[in-house]
Design a binder for these strands. Structure first.
Lengths: 241, 241
DNA sequence: CGCGAGCTTGAACATTATCAAGGCAAGTGG
DNA sequence: CCACTTGCCTTGATAATGTTCAAGCTCGCG
């Protein structure tokens, strides 16, 4: 790999292509060539990578860090659609359809991204059906995530929605400890509220209530320890009383 | 086209491939070959084409009619995720990921479908990158629809959500008349309520209220005449009072 | 250590779900 | 052709739930 023509010094940008599922079928050299044509950027916390309505002719991949994607609701709130993690991509819509971005993407912490121009990516797809299939698979995964989210949002009781969210975060951002699952939250209380489409205060109240029930324990403001997963499941699921 | 080997008698099933965007790059003969390997089915109203959790190894295309896709919520309600129209496809997830269906698809009226087995479709993708690109584009469209839906569902005021839904239906199922836009509703009141995740009664009330405001007029139970689109837009958007 | 952003809590208010009782319309069978 | 029946829709009253506004608190950062 170190003999690759594009990275004689440090192979910095290969990181971005290597860790991305949609390019996993490429061999080392192709990956390197690809990385060479990408535009790499570093981001600070709270930086906007892409704005709703903006014209973008690139596919952007989050090579490190996390970000939220949201649309503004008429009343000025942020409706969060996705929480992106390393390896997720976006902006591809514009690339294929020539349309404008449907949402804003803002980093949740330090992050880095790499972007591929329209032509490059298009050529890549035509030449490598395998990549196209990978892209389809990734899109399917994302759709499934979103369907799951919609399902969650359709639940009438807010308790149910909150619990579902916690379980979901637990799977993605949680680590097992002796006491339970420790979640390092990607979103603030306000962010979570915006994800579920509820008021920030309500989110606080629900969490307090869950703490009172002994189901979880906040650890600082950015983490939560899930003490009783089964009870959470129950509330997310069968119980709507 | 009539010289195509597969349809010497009536070219019935070619209808299905010809009207489907993802196959639009194929020429007549390819299309015909494709149609020949598809499994064609007719459906009555209320028939279940696909069940949540079911194993399906096929891509199913709705060649005529409409259908709803839903998941059951823990409390037994149907959370509708999509309303499919002619040309929409589903089941592809299982095909690529080997996973189970995430939702149930049920026809809303008489309909017909055609299904392609896993291998056939896979081969098709590998051989025709254009089809893969078309599939990606279609998936992107669907994602955009869903993002729009989530955006709608995130709106706090129900009035806003109801109005958004009506506008959306207006674009898809409406026809312009002298008095306004006449929508032939694909869903019942209950269906619409399930789409928005609210109670059937609430849906009724909201519609009555909109009628009282002179914004719309129900025509029978299955159609609605939108009299004042601008007012609807306002309620869907800026007004949350 | 002090400041500010973000979080929590309380109380009044607004909205929606739920339960219950009809109503309307389409389809069925006499 | 009419009465009947069934499914779906509407409306009302009440209880449950969430929002909003306002105040005070805590954590985390400089």
């Amino acid at each position: 790999m170190s003999q690759c023509p594009c990275c004689q010094s440090s192979c910095l940008h290969k990181l971005c292509t290597e860790q991305i599922p949609i390019f996993s079928s490429l061999d080392g050299e192709e990956m390197c060539r690809l990385a060479a044509i990408a535009r790499h950027r570093q981001h600070q916390k709270g930086e906007t990578i892409l704005s709703e309505g903006e014209d973008v002719d690139a596919l952007i991949i989050l090579s490190a860090g996390s970000a939220k994607a949201y649309k503004l609701t008429p009343d000025g709130r942020e409706q969060i659609l996705y929480v992106f993690a390393q390896g997720d991509f976006f902006g591809e819509r514009n690339l294929l359809g020539g349309r404008k971005s449907a949402y804003t993407v803002e980093t949740l912490g330090p992050a880095s991204s790499c972007a591929f121009g329209c032509e490059e990516f298009f050529g890549l797809l035509r030449g490598n059906p395998e990549i196209a299939i990978k892209v389809i698979q990734e899109l399917e995964k994302r759709m499934e995530r979103m369907e799951e989210t919609m399902h969650t949002m359709g639940v009438r009781s807010l308790d149910g929605r909150v619990c579902s969210l916690l379980l979901e975060f637990g799977e993605k951002y949680g680590s097992e400890t002796q006491e339970g699952t420790l979640i390092h939250l990607p979103l603030s209380r306000e962010g979570m509220a915006n994800f579920l489409g509820i008021a920030r205060e309500t989110m606080s109240r629900k969490l307090s209530q869950l703490e009172a029930d002994g189901i979880l324990r906040p650890v600082g403001n950015k983490s939560i320890l899930l003490l009783d997963r089964p009870a959470l499941r129950l509330m997310a699921g069968k119980t709507d009383s």
